[in-house]
Design a protein around this nucleic acid. Sequence first.
DNA 1: TCGTCACTTTACCAAATGGTAAAAAAGCAG
DNA 2: CTGCTTTTTTACCATTTGGTAAAGTGACGA
Lengths: 228, 228
Amino acid sequence: MTQSDTAQDQAQDQATGTAAETAQTPPAEKKLSRIQQRNRKRIIEAALEVFAQHGYRGATLDQIAKTAGLSKPNILYYFDGKEAIHVTLLNQLMETWLDPLAEMDPNGDPLEEVMAYIHRKVQMSREYPRESRLFANEILQGAPRMKPHLISGLKPLVDEKTEVLRAWMQAGQLATVDPRHLLYSIWATTQHYADFEVQIGVLSPDERDPIDGADAYLDTMFRKLLTP
Amino acid sequence: MTQSDTAQDQAQDQATGTAAETAQTPPAEKKLSRIQQRNRKRIIEAALEVFAQHGYRGATLDQIAKTAGLSKPNILYYFDGKEAIHVTLLNQLMETWLDPLAEMDPNGDPLEEVMAYIHRKVQMSREYPRESRLFANEILQGAPRMKPHLISGLKPLVDEKTEVLRAWMQAGQLATVDPRHLLYSIWATTQHYADFEVQIGVLSPDERDPIDGADAYLDTMFRKLLTP
DNA sequence: TCGTCACTTTACCAAATGGTAAAAAAGCAG
DNA sequence: CTGCTTTTTTACCATTTGGTAAAGTGACGA
Protein backbone atom coordinates (compact mmCIF):
# COMPACT_ATOMS: atom_id res chain seq x y z
CA MET A 1 0.00 0.00 0.00
CA THR A 2 2.67 2.43 1.09
CA GLN A 3 4.81 1.12 -1.70
CA SER A 4 2.45 1.86 -4.54
CA ASP A 5 2.21 5.40 -3.26
CA THR A 6 5.93 5.88 -3.52
CA ALA A 7 5.80 4.85 -7.14
CA GLN A 8 2.89 7.11 -7.91
CA ASP A 9 4.62 9.84 -6.06
CA GLN A 10 7.71 9.70 -8.17
CA ALA A 11 5.56 9.76 -11.27
CA GLN A 12 4.30 13.14 -10.16
CA ASP A 13 7.78 14.54 -9.99
CA GLN A 14 9.34 12.79 -12.91
CA ALA A 15 6.44 13.47 -15.22
CA THR A 16 8.56 14.63 -18.12
CA GLY A 17 11.00 11.85 -18.84
CA THR A 18 13.91 13.49 -20.61
CA ALA A 19 13.29 16.85 -19.06
CA ALA A 20 16.96 17.59 -18.71
CA GLU A 21 17.25 17.86 -22.47
CA THR A 22 14.23 20.12 -22.90
CA ALA A 23 15.59 23.16 -21.19
CA GLN A 24 19.21 23.05 -22.19
CA THR A 25 20.52 26.05 -24.08
CA PRO A 26 19.53 25.30 -27.66
CA PRO A 27 22.70 24.53 -29.61
CA ALA A 28 21.47 26.39 -32.67
CA GLU A 29 20.32 29.90 -31.81
CA LYS A 30 22.89 31.63 -29.66
CA LYS A 31 21.95 35.23 -30.35
CA LEU A 32 19.75 36.45 -27.53
CA SER A 33 18.53 40.01 -27.69
CA ARG A 34 19.60 42.26 -24.87
CA ILE A 35 16.08 42.21 -23.49
CA GLN A 36 16.01 38.43 -23.65
CA GLN A 37 19.25 38.18 -21.76
CA ARG A 38 18.09 40.57 -19.10
CA ASN A 39 14.72 38.94 -18.51
CA ARG A 40 16.02 35.41 -18.59
CA LYS A 41 18.57 36.36 -16.00
CA ARG A 42 15.88 38.00 -13.88
CA ILE A 43 13.73 34.91 -14.02
CA ILE A 44 16.59 32.58 -13.19
CA GLU A 45 17.57 34.78 -10.27
CA ALA A 46 14.00 34.87 -8.97
CA ALA A 47 13.59 31.14 -9.45
CA LEU A 48 16.77 30.50 -7.51
CA GLU A 49 15.36 32.47 -4.63
CA VAL A 50 12.03 30.68 -4.64
CA PHE A 51 13.10 27.12 -5.43
CA ALA A 52 15.88 27.32 -2.86
CA GLN A 53 13.43 28.18 -0.14
CA HIS A 54 10.50 25.94 -0.97
CA GLY A 55 11.79 23.13 -3.14
CA TYR A 56 10.37 22.27 -6.51
CA ARG A 57 6.83 21.37 -5.56
CA GLY A 58 6.52 24.07 -2.98
CA ALA A 59 7.50 26.82 -5.39
CA THR A 60 4.89 28.52 -7.55
CA LEU A 61 5.13 30.35 -10.84
CA ASP A 62 3.24 33.28 -9.38
CA GLN A 63 5.85 33.61 -6.69
CA ILE A 64 8.67 33.47 -9.20
CA ALA A 65 6.88 35.95 -11.41
CA LYS A 66 6.32 38.40 -8.62
CA THR A 67 9.90 38.09 -7.40
CA ALA A 68 11.16 38.64 -10.92
CA GLY A 69 8.86 41.61 -11.41
CA LEU A 70 7.24 40.07 -14.46
CA SER A 71 3.82 38.68 -15.23
CA LYS A 72 3.31 34.93 -15.17
CA PRO A 73 2.50 34.63 -18.89
CA ASN A 74 5.55 36.71 -19.60
CA ILE A 75 7.65 34.21 -17.74
CA LEU A 76 6.17 31.43 -19.80
CA TYR A 77 7.18 33.38 -22.86
CA TYR A 78 10.81 32.91 -21.86
CA PHE A 79 10.66 29.39 -20.46
CA ASP A 80 8.60 26.39 -21.48
CA GLY A 81 7.26 25.89 -17.99
CA LYS A 82 8.04 25.48 -14.34
CA GLU A 83 10.11 22.40 -14.87
CA ALA A 84 12.17 24.00 -17.65
CA ILE A 85 13.14 26.81 -15.30
CA HIS A 86 14.14 24.39 -12.61
CA VAL A 87 16.17 22.27 -14.96
CA THR A 88 17.97 25.29 -16.39
CA LEU A 89 18.83 26.34 -12.87
CA LEU A 90 20.11 22.89 -11.99
CA ASN A 91 22.23 22.71 -15.11
CA GLN A 92 23.89 26.00 -14.34
CA LEU A 93 24.40 24.91 -10.76
CA MET A 94 26.22 21.71 -11.62
CA GLU A 95 29.17 23.53 -13.15
CA THR A 96 29.52 25.92 -10.25
CA TRP A 97 29.21 23.06 -7.86
CA LEU A 98 31.75 20.70 -9.35
CA ASP A 99 34.32 23.37 -10.03
CA PRO A 100 35.99 23.57 -6.61
CA LEU A 101 36.63 19.84 -6.57
CA ALA A 102 37.80 19.81 -10.18
CA GLU A 103 40.40 22.39 -9.26
CA MET A 104 42.11 20.09 -6.78
CA ASP A 105 45.46 19.60 -8.44
CA PRO A 106 47.01 16.10 -8.43
CA ASN A 107 50.43 17.72 -8.77
CA GLY A 108 50.10 20.15 -5.89
CA ASP A 109 51.02 19.60 -2.27
CA PRO A 110 48.50 17.01 -1.04
CA LEU A 111 47.56 18.43 2.33
CA GLU A 112 47.42 21.99 1.05
CA GLU A 113 45.38 20.96 -1.97
CA VAL A 114 42.75 19.37 0.23
CA MET A 115 42.76 22.27 2.65
CA ALA A 116 42.40 24.73 -0.21
CA TYR A 117 39.45 22.72 -1.48
CA ILE A 118 37.84 22.90 1.93
CA HIS A 119 38.30 26.64 2.15
CA ARG A 120 36.85 27.02 -1.32
CA LYS A 121 33.80 25.08 -0.21
CA VAL A 122 33.40 27.21 2.91
CA GLN A 123 33.59 30.25 0.69
CA MET A 124 30.85 28.83 -1.50
CA SER A 125 28.58 28.50 1.52
CA ARG A 126 29.23 32.10 2.31
CA GLU A 127 28.76 33.47 -1.19
CA TYR A 128 26.17 31.15 -2.66
CA PRO A 129 23.95 29.94 0.16
CA ARG A 130 20.89 29.85 -2.07
CA GLU A 131 22.62 27.63 -4.56
CA SER A 132 23.58 25.32 -1.73
CA ARG A 133 20.00 25.16 -0.52
CA LEU A 134 18.69 24.62 -4.03
CA PHE A 135 21.00 21.64 -4.31
CA ALA A 136 20.09 20.37 -0.85
CA ASN A 137 16.40 20.60 -1.63
CA GLU A 138 16.78 18.69 -4.85
CA ILE A 139 18.75 15.89 -3.21
CA LEU A 140 16.47 15.77 -0.17
CA GLN A 141 13.47 15.27 -2.39
CA GLY A 142 15.13 12.34 -4.08
CA ALA A 143 16.95 14.21 -6.87
CA PRO A 144 14.21 13.43 -9.42
CA ARG A 145 15.56 15.97 -11.88
CA MET A 146 19.21 15.74 -10.99
CA LYS A 147 20.07 12.09 -10.62
CA PRO A 148 21.22 11.86 -14.24
CA HIS A 149 23.57 14.77 -13.66
CA LEU A 150 24.91 13.19 -10.52
CA ILE A 151 25.67 10.02 -12.41
CA SER A 152 27.12 11.63 -15.51
CA GLY A 153 28.79 14.63 -13.92
CA LEU A 154 29.55 14.18 -10.26
CA LYS A 155 30.27 10.46 -10.16
CA PRO A 156 33.16 10.43 -12.65
CA LEU A 157 34.74 13.45 -11.01
CA VAL A 158 34.47 11.88 -7.58
CA ASP A 159 35.88 8.60 -8.84
CA GLU A 160 38.81 10.48 -10.33
CA LYS A 161 39.58 12.59 -7.29
CA THR A 162 39.08 9.62 -5.02
CA GLU A 163 41.93 7.94 -6.84
CA VAL A 164 44.12 11.00 -6.47
CA LEU A 165 43.48 11.02 -2.74
CA ARG A 166 44.18 7.32 -2.50
CA ALA A 167 47.49 7.79 -4.28
CA TRP A 168 48.49 10.59 -1.93
CA MET A 169 47.65 8.41 1.04
CA GLN A 170 49.55 5.45 -0.31
CA ALA A 171 52.55 7.71 -0.84
CA GLY A 172 52.33 8.66 2.82
CA GLN A 173 51.63 12.29 2.02
CA LEU A 174 48.22 12.18 3.61
CA ALA A 175 46.89 10.18 6.54
CA THR A 176 44.99 7.14 5.36
CA VAL A 177 41.21 7.40 5.60
CA ASP A 178 38.38 6.36 3.33
CA PRO A 179 38.62 9.00 0.58
CA ARG A 180 34.94 8.82 -0.27
CA HIS A 181 33.85 9.43 3.30
CA LEU A 182 36.44 12.17 3.49
CA LEU A 183 34.69 13.96 0.64
CA TYR A 184 31.29 13.36 2.23
CA SER A 185 32.47 14.91 5.48
CA ILE A 186 33.88 17.91 3.65
CA TRP A 187 30.64 18.49 1.81
CA ALA A 188 28.55 17.95 4.91
CA THR A 189 30.48 20.29 7.17
CA THR A 190 30.89 23.10 4.67
CA GLN A 191 27.41 23.11 3.16
CA HIS A 192 25.87 22.81 6.59
CA TYR A 193 26.49 26.49 7.21
CA ALA A 194 24.39 27.46 4.21
CA ASP A 195 21.72 24.78 4.42
CA PHE A 196 21.10 25.08 8.17
CA GLU A 197 21.71 28.80 8.33
CA VAL A 198 18.56 29.43 10.37
CA GLN A 199 19.55 26.91 13.00
CA ILE A 200 23.08 28.25 13.16
CA GLY A 201 21.63 31.71 13.50
CA VAL A 202 19.55 30.66 16.49
CA LEU A 203 22.45 28.93 18.22
CA SER A 204 25.36 31.22 17.48
CA PRO A 205 25.50 33.96 20.08
CA ASP A 206 25.89 37.17 18.11
CA GLU A 207 29.16 35.95 16.68
CA ARG A 208 29.75 38.35 13.76
CA ASP A 209 29.75 35.70 11.09
CA PRO A 210 29.64 32.04 12.11
CA ILE A 211 31.33 31.16 8.85
CA ASP A 212 34.51 32.86 9.98
CA GLY A 213 34.58 30.55 12.95
CA ALA A 214 33.73 27.66 10.68
CA ASP A 215 36.65 28.34 8.43
CA ALA A 216 39.08 28.23 11.34
CA TYR A 217 37.46 25.24 13.00
CA LEU A 218 37.33 23.16 9.85
CA ASP A 219 40.94 23.99 9.13
CA THR A 220 42.13 22.51 12.40
CA MET A 221 39.75 19.59 12.17
CA PHE A 222 40.78 18.41 8.73
CA ARG A 223 44.43 19.22 9.28
CA LYS A 224 44.48 16.99 12.35
CA LEU A 225 42.70 14.30 10.40
CA LEU A 226 44.89 14.37 7.35
CA THR A 227 48.37 15.23 8.57
CA PRO A 228 50.28 11.97 8.13
CA MET B 1 10.27 44.88 -4.66
CA THR B 2 11.98 41.65 -3.83
CA GLN B 3 11.69 42.56 -0.20
CA SER B 4 7.94 42.87 -0.10
CA ASP B 5 7.78 39.43 -1.64
CA THR B 6 9.75 37.94 1.15
CA ALA B 7 7.33 39.38 3.65
CA GLN B 8 4.30 38.19 1.76
CA ASP B 9 5.97 34.87 1.35
CA GLN B 10 6.42 34.37 5.03
CA ALA B 11 2.82 35.27 5.60
CA GLN B 12 1.90 32.33 3.43
CA ASP B 13 3.83 29.94 5.60
CA GLN B 14 3.22 31.42 8.97
CA ALA B 15 -0.46 32.00 8.39
CA THR B 16 -1.59 30.64 11.74
CA GLY B 17 0.29 32.59 14.35
CA THR B 18 0.36 30.41 17.41
CA ALA B 19 -0.01 27.22 15.45
CA ALA B 20 2.32 25.32 17.74
CA GLU B 21 -0.26 25.53 20.47
CA THR B 22 -3.17 24.43 18.30
CA ALA B 23 -2.01 20.91 17.64
CA GLN B 24 -0.43 20.02 20.95
CA THR B 25 -1.95 17.12 22.79
CA PRO B 26 -4.86 18.69 24.62
CA PRO B 27 -4.08 18.66 28.34
CA ALA B 28 -7.63 17.68 29.29
CA GLU B 29 -8.85 14.67 27.34
CA LYS B 30 -6.27 11.91 27.38
CA LYS B 31 -8.52 8.96 26.67
CA LEU B 32 -8.28 8.17 22.99
CA SER B 33 -10.34 5.26 21.69
CA ARG B 34 -8.37 2.39 20.22
CA ILE B 35 -9.52 3.38 16.77
CA GLN B 36 -8.44 6.96 17.37
CA GLN B 37 -5.00 5.88 18.44
CA ARG B 38 -4.59 3.61 15.46
CA ASN B 39 -5.71 6.13 12.89
CA ARG B 40 -3.82 9.03 14.36
CA LYS B 41 -0.70 6.94 14.28
CA ARG B 42 -1.35 5.98 10.67
CA ILE B 43 -1.79 9.58 9.67
CA ILE B 44 1.34 10.71 11.46
CA GLU B 45 3.29 7.91 9.86
CA ALA B 46 2.01 8.80 6.40
CA ALA B 47 2.60 12.49 6.98
CA LEU B 48 6.18 11.77 8.02
CA GLU B 49 6.72 9.98 4.74
CA VAL B 50 5.22 12.74 2.62
CA PHE B 51 6.48 15.82 4.46
CA ALA B 52 9.98 14.37 4.65
CA GLN B 53 10.11 13.98 0.91
CA HIS B 54 8.44 17.14 -0.29
CA GLY B 55 8.60 19.66 2.52
CA TYR B 56 5.58 21.42 3.93
CA ARG B 57 4.38 23.28 0.89
CA GLY B 58 5.16 20.46 -1.50
CA ALA B 59 3.14 17.91 0.45
CA THR B 60 -0.58 17.48 -0.18
CA LEU B 61 -3.37 16.17 2.00
CA ASP B 62 -4.44 13.84 -0.78
CA GLN B 63 -1.02 12.28 -0.80
CA ILE B 64 -1.01 11.86 2.95
CA ALA B 65 -4.50 10.44 2.84
CA LYS B 66 -3.64 7.92 0.17
CA THR B 67 -0.45 6.91 1.96
CA ALA B 68 -2.38 6.48 5.19
CA GLY B 69 -5.10 4.51 3.45
CA LEU B 70 -7.80 6.93 4.58
CA SER B 71 -9.99 9.46 2.84
CA LYS B 72 -9.08 13.11 2.98
CA PRO B 73 -12.13 14.19 4.97
CA ASN B 74 -11.43 11.37 7.35
CA ILE B 75 -7.99 12.74 7.96
CA LEU B 76 -9.48 16.13 8.69
CA TYR B 77 -11.68 14.43 11.23
CA TYR B 78 -8.57 13.52 13.20
CA PHE B 79 -6.52 16.66 12.66
CA ASP B 80 -7.54 20.27 12.32
CA GLY B 81 -5.71 20.70 9.06
CA LYS B 82 -2.49 20.28 7.17
CA GLU B 83 -0.59 22.57 9.46
CA ALA B 84 -1.81 20.81 12.59
CA ILE B 85 -0.45 17.52 11.29
CA HIS B 86 2.89 19.07 10.49
CA VAL B 87 3.16 20.74 13.86
CA THR B 88 2.28 17.53 15.68
CA LEU B 89 4.98 15.77 13.75
CA LEU B 90 7.53 18.45 14.55
CA ASN B 91 6.67 18.38 18.23
CA GLN B 92 7.19 14.65 18.41
CA LEU B 93 10.41 14.99 16.49
CA MET B 94 11.98 17.51 18.84
CA GLU B 95 12.12 15.07 21.72
CA THR B 96 13.62 12.30 19.64
CA TRP B 97 16.08 14.70 18.18
CA LEU B 98 17.36 16.30 21.37
CA ASP B 99 17.60 13.06 23.27
CA PRO B 100 21.01 11.83 22.09
CA LEU B 101 22.66 15.10 23.06
CA ALA B 102 20.82 15.26 26.35
CA GLU B 103 22.25 11.85 27.22
CA MET B 104 25.82 13.12 27.05
CA ASP B 105 26.89 12.70 30.66
CA PRO B 106 29.01 15.46 32.26
CA ASN B 107 30.36 12.87 34.69
CA GLY B 108 31.41 10.31 32.14
CA ASP B 109 34.74 9.98 30.38
CA PRO B 110 34.90 13.05 28.11
CA LEU B 111 36.26 11.54 24.92
CA GLU B 112 34.09 8.47 25.20
CA GLU B 113 31.00 10.51 25.95
CA VAL B 114 31.46 12.55 22.79
CA MET B 115 32.24 9.48 20.73
CA ALA B 116 29.18 7.73 22.09
CA TYR B 117 27.10 10.75 21.15
CA ILE B 118 28.48 10.61 17.63
CA HIS B 119 27.69 6.94 17.26
CA ARG B 120 24.19 7.56 18.56
CA LYS B 121 23.72 10.22 15.90
CA VAL B 122 24.99 7.91 13.17
CA GLN B 123 22.55 5.33 14.39
CA MET B 124 19.74 7.87 14.15
CA SER B 125 20.59 8.49 10.52
CA ARG B 126 20.37 4.78 9.90
CA GLU B 127 17.16 4.18 11.79
CA TYR B 128 15.27 7.40 11.29
CA PRO B 129 16.29 8.84 7.94
CA ARG B 130 12.83 10.25 7.31
CA GLU B 131 12.84 12.14 10.57
CA SER B 132 16.21 13.56 9.64
CA ARG B 133 14.90 14.71 6.28
CA LEU B 134 11.76 16.15 7.83
CA PHE B 135 13.97 18.21 10.09
CA ALA B 136 16.29 19.20 7.26
CA ASN B 137 13.36 20.30 5.13
CA GLU B 138 11.93 22.43 7.88
CA ILE B 139 15.24 24.16 8.56
CA LEU B 140 16.02 24.58 4.86
CA GLN B 141 12.75 26.37 4.33
CA GLY B 142 13.53 28.78 7.10
CA ALA B 143 12.05 26.84 10.03
CA PRO B 144 8.77 28.84 9.93
CA ARG B 145 7.04 26.38 12.22
CA MET B 146 10.02 25.27 14.24
CA LYS B 147 12.02 28.33 15.14
CA PRO B 148 10.22 28.71 18.48
CA HIS B 149 11.15 25.12 19.33
CA LEU B 150 14.74 25.72 18.36
CA ILE B 151 14.90 28.70 20.65
CA SER B 152 13.05 27.17 23.58
CA GLY B 153 14.25 23.57 23.25
CA LEU B 154 17.48 23.23 21.34
CA LYS B 155 19.21 26.45 22.33
CA PRO B 156 19.25 25.90 26.11
CA LEU B 157 20.41 22.33 25.66
CA VAL B 158 23.21 23.38 23.35
CA ASP B 159 24.26 26.16 25.69
CA GLU B 160 24.41 23.68 28.53
CA LYS B 161 26.36 21.01 26.70
CA THR B 162 28.63 23.61 25.20
CA GLU B 163 29.65 24.51 28.74
CA VAL B 164 30.28 20.88 29.58
CA LEU B 165 32.53 20.54 26.57
CA ARG B 166 34.37 23.72 27.43
CA ALA B 167 34.99 22.46 30.94
CA TRP B 168 36.36 19.19 29.64
CA MET B 169 38.68 21.06 27.32
CA GLN B 170 39.87 23.39 30.03
CA ALA B 171 40.62 20.36 32.19
CA GLY B 172 42.78 19.01 29.39
CA GLN B 173 40.58 15.98 28.92
CA LEU B 174 39.63 16.98 25.39
CA ALA B 175 41.54 18.85 22.72
CA THR B 176 40.52 22.50 22.62
CA VAL B 177 38.27 23.45 19.74
CA ASP B 178 35.22 25.68 19.42
CA PRO B 179 32.53 23.54 21.11
CA ARG B 180 29.72 25.04 19.09
CA HIS B 181 31.37 24.31 15.78
CA LEU B 182 32.23 20.88 17.09
CA LEU B 183 28.52 20.20 17.54
CA TYR B 184 27.74 21.63 14.12
CA SER B 185 30.27 19.33 12.51
CA ILE B 186 28.86 16.32 14.33
CA TRP B 187 25.35 17.11 13.20
CA ALA B 188 26.44 17.86 9.67
CA THR B 189 28.49 14.72 9.16
CA THR B 190 26.04 12.32 10.75
CA GLN B 191 22.80 13.68 9.32
CA HIS B 192 24.38 13.96 5.91
CA TYR B 193 24.01 10.22 5.40
CA ALA B 194 20.24 10.46 5.83
CA ASP B 195 19.62 13.79 4.15
CA PHE B 196 21.81 13.18 1.11
CA GLU B 197 21.09 9.47 0.89
CA VAL B 198 20.37 9.63 -2.84
CA GLN B 199 23.68 11.27 -3.57
CA ILE B 200 25.55 8.85 -1.37
CA GLY B 201 23.77 6.03 -3.14
CA VAL B 202 24.94 7.27 -6.52
CA LEU B 203 28.54 7.68 -5.39
CA SER B 204 29.07 4.70 -3.14
CA PRO B 205 30.13 1.73 -5.20
CA ASP B 206 27.91 -1.12 -4.08
CA GLU B 207 29.31 -0.86 -0.59
CA ARG B 208 26.81 -2.86 1.48
CA ASP B 209 25.80 0.00 3.72
CA PRO B 210 27.63 3.31 3.48
CA ILE B 211 26.64 4.04 7.05
CA ASP B 212 28.88 1.24 8.29
CA GLY B 213 31.79 2.95 6.64
CA ALA B 214 30.59 6.27 7.99
CA ASP B 215 30.58 4.99 11.53
CA ALA B 216 34.20 3.87 11.27
CA TYR B 217 35.35 6.97 9.41
CA LEU B 218 33.71 9.41 11.79
CA ASP B 219 35.15 7.53 14.73
CA THR B 220 38.71 8.07 13.53
CA MET B 221 38.04 11.62 12.42
CA PHE B 222 36.61 12.86 15.68
CA ARG B 223 39.01 10.83 17.79
CA LYS B 224 41.95 12.45 16.04
CA LEU B 225 40.35 15.83 16.49
CA LEU B 226 39.50 15.48 20.16
CA THR B 227 42.25 13.37 21.66
CA PRO B 228 44.17 15.84 23.81
C1' DT C 1 5.48 56.52 -42.15
C1' DC C 2 4.40 51.88 -42.35
C1' DG C 3 4.76 47.03 -41.68
C1' DT C 4 6.88 43.47 -39.27
C1' DC C 5 8.64 41.12 -35.59
C1' DA C 6 9.67 40.94 -30.61
C1' DC C 7 7.71 41.45 -26.35
C1' DT C 8 3.74 42.12 -22.82
C1' DT C 9 -0.74 42.12 -21.07
C1' DT C 10 -5.52 40.69 -20.45
C1' DA C 11 -8.72 37.29 -20.03
C1' DC C 12 -9.31 32.78 -19.47
C1' DC C 13 -9.10 27.40 -18.24
C1' DA C 14 -8.86 22.86 -16.37
C1' DA C 15 -6.90 20.52 -12.73
C1' DA C 16 -5.37 20.33 -8.11
C1' DT C 17 -5.73 21.53 -3.38
C1' DG C 18 -7.25 22.61 1.44
C1' DG C 19 -11.35 22.34 3.52
C1' DT C 20 -16.67 21.73 4.81
C1' DA C 21 -21.55 19.89 5.38
C1' DA C 22 -24.25 16.43 6.02
C1' DA C 23 -25.74 11.94 5.24
C1' DA C 24 -24.57 7.09 5.98
C1' DA C 25 -22.40 3.38 8.40
C1' DA C 26 -20.14 1.27 12.40
C1' DG C 27 -19.54 0.59 17.23
C1' DC C 28 -21.13 -0.11 21.43
C1' DA C 29 -23.44 0.35 26.20
C1' DG C 30 -27.76 -0.91 28.12
C1' DC D 1 -32.07 -5.46 19.75
C1' DT D 2 -32.06 -0.54 20.42
C1' DG D 3 -30.74 4.07 20.73
C1' DC D 4 -26.82 6.95 20.91
C1' DT D 5 -22.16 8.13 19.78
C1' DT D 6 -18.19 7.73 17.01
C1' DT D 7 -16.32 7.13 12.53
C1' DT D 8 -16.50 7.25 7.46
C1' DT D 9 -18.17 8.47 3.06
C1' DT D 10 -20.30 11.28 -0.47
C1' DA D 11 -20.90 15.53 -2.42
C1' DC D 12 -19.43 19.87 -2.74
C1' DC D 13 -16.72 24.55 -2.67
C1' DA D 14 -13.51 28.40 -3.04
C1' DT D 15 -8.85 29.20 -4.10
C1' DT D 16 -4.62 28.31 -6.08
C1' DT D 17 -1.81 26.79 -9.67
C1' DG D 18 0.37 25.67 -14.15
C1' DG D 19 -0.65 26.94 -18.50
C1' DT D 20 -2.87 29.05 -23.06
C1' DA D 21 -5.01 32.24 -26.63
C1' DA D 22 -5.20 36.23 -28.45
C1' DA D 23 -5.20 40.97 -28.36
C1' DG D 24 -2.22 44.83 -27.61
C1' DT D 25 2.18 47.52 -27.31
C1' DG D 26 6.60 48.78 -28.78
C1' DA D 27 10.92 48.98 -31.45
C1' DC D 28 13.00 49.47 -35.66
C1' DG D 29 14.50 48.94 -40.47
C1' DA D 30 12.80 49.99 -45.25
